[in-house]
């Protein structure tokens, strides 16, 4: 697999470490009942999956990668911590 790191360019996936579902957010500490779900339960879709990859052998960025879990095809790669992305704007508002 090749991942187009927004900072470093296209690199082999062996430079990256995988974490999992990128849609999971750390719940608000005032809502402890949400922690179990956030830490343990996964949609685990067969198909498009937003996921977190860490470019540990490169720029150390956490990336949000959209990939098909059936074909391994990668659709988009973006910096997780990029304020311009929609998801982060939502998060900032929340």
């Amino acid at each position: 697999m090749r991942i187009q790191c927004p900072f470093c360019g296209e690199r082999d996936s062996s430079e990256f470490t995988y974490l999992g579902d990128a849609t999971v957010r750390r719940p608000d500490p005032s809502a402890p009942e949400q922690y179990f779900e956030a830490v343990y339960l996964r949609d685990n879709p067969a198909g498009r999956h937003e996921e977190l990859w860490y470019h540990g052998f490169g720029c150390r960025s956490w990336l949000r990668v959209t990939r098909d879990t059936r074909t391994h095809e990668i659709f988009t790669v973006e910096m997780y911590n990029d304020a311009t992305t929609e998801t982060n704007q939502e998060a900032a508002r929340a």
């Binding site: 999992g20 779900e37 343990y40 339960l41 996964r42 949609d43 685990n44 879709p45 067969a46 879990t69």
Partner: peptide, 18 residues
């Protein structure tokens, strides 16, 4: 390997990744 695929049909999320 396919448990989530099936339980998703039943609306059940699991502590499982494939």
């Amino acid at each position: 390997g396919n448990t989530s695929r099936l339980t998703n049909l039943a609306g059940l999320r699991l502590p499982i990744e494939s």
